[in-house]
């Protein structure tokens, strides 16, 4: 199944956002009780996990806990409980405007560029090797119409664009790529990684397989030491996407990191997916991508082009949701009467 893909452009499925009602409730009360008309950007936390069902992709989810709490702001980051395997924290930033007009006139290109710059900096300084979750930063712009309980919003998942794009040599289910012994060992090693509270929410990792088919999962920072041992090495990541022929969005900045930090022209990657909470090599993919290092990528100062505004039903437009039913006090009073 790999043959026909040879030389084609590697095409990635975009991240999808899902916002829990609790997020809008907490944003509203923050706005009313604390922020007022302050439009300063707010650091927020999104959560994601590997795809866990063959029919649906996982999302970047925002919950009430994604926002700082009203009372004790300093504890909000500490409260972001680490180690929950179904909630790998990803850093984001929220621009909440005071009017619908300013929402529409926000300079979306430069906001996206500013976030992409942070990713670019983290790649060049090596921070993203230490804390790989930094590769998937996101951006949210919103306008909360608290008179009508309508929320207008738009997510962006900034990625650095490889120009020319990476091409695909092959892509196949991981169960076909590995031998039976290897597959068993890779599954066991990944499950162990996912079950340890120290590594469960580390979304980028290395899978090293020795000549005796024994696999180990390692941190990105161990890449150099892995070079000398002669083991097969894959760049693994938690893939939120469920599609059989496309890797998910997080691979894009991962390739950028691999290209800038380690200067690799050929990258073998593992799109790690699960079924019912356990490693599923039948739906996980192994692929090989060829990268031509774009001009200027060695230079920290020249920021590459970035894209990533979320598509909504195939178009790049904002979304809106009405929560009048659950938030409007008069409606609540009527329904309770």
């Amino acid at each position: 199944m790999a043959g026909h893909d040879s030389g084609s452009i590697l095409v990635f499925a975009q991240f999808q956002s899902a916002v829990d009602e609790g997020f809008w409730h907490r944003l509203s009360s923050l706005k009313l009780n604390k922020l007022g008309i302050d439009e300063s950007p707010i650091p927020i936390t999104g959560y994601y996990a590997p795809c866990s069902h063959p029919q649906v992709s996982n999302n970047l989810t925002l919950l009430a806990q994604s926002l700082p709490s009203e009372s004790n702001e300093q504890s909000s980051t500490a409260a972001t409980s680490r180690g929950n395997r179904n909630r790998c924290p990803i850093r984001g930033i929220l621009y909440n405007t005071n009017t619908i007009e300013s929402f529409h006139t926000l300079d979306k290109k430069s906001l996206l560029r500013a976030e992409a710059k942070k990713i670019w900096d983290d790649i060049h300084t090596g921070r993203a090797v230490e804390d790989s979750a930094l590769l998937s930063r996101f951006l949210l712009i919103s306008f909360a119409d608290l008179k009508k309980w309508n929320f207008h919003y738009w997510f962006a998942f900034p990625v650095l664009v490889l120009d020319p794009p990476a091409t695909l040599v092959d892509l196949m289910p991981a169960s076909q790529y590995f031998s039976l012994e290897e597959a068993e060992s890779v599954s066991a090693a990944c499950n162990e990684w996912r079950n340890s509270s120290l590594t469960a929410d580390v979304p980028f990792f290395l899978v090293s397989t020795d000549p005796n088919s024994h696999a180990t999962v390692k941190h990105l920072k161990d890449w150099e030491t892995c070079q000398s041992d002669g083991h097969k090495l894959l760049f693994g990541f938690y893939d939120p996407c469920h599609l059989p022929h496309n890797p998910g969005w997080p691979l894009r900045n991962y390739l950028a990191l691999i290209c800038v930090r380690w200067n690799l022209k050929s990258v073998r990657f593992l799109c790690y997916r699960e079924s019912r909470g356990f490693a599923d090599l039948g739906s996980s993919l192994v692929g090989e991508a060829l990268i031509t290092v774009p001009q200027g990528w060695r230079d920290h100062q020249s920021l590459p082009n970035a894209v990533g505004w979320e598509h909504n039903k195939g178009r790049q437009v904002p979304r809106s949701i009405s929560l009048a039913k659950s938030m409007d006090p008069t409606r609540l009073a009527i329904s309770a009467a």
């Binding site: 529409h104 894209v307 505004w309 437009v317 904002p318």
Partner: peptide, 21 residues
């Protein structure tokens, strides 16, 4: 949605983005 898509509709052209997820 149609009300809001004109002023800030932006088209990012990128061959590596899967169209219509």
């Amino acid at each position: 949605m149609a009300e809001y898509d004109e002023p800030d509709n932006l088209i990012e052209t990128d061959p590596a983005t899967l169209q219509s997820t």
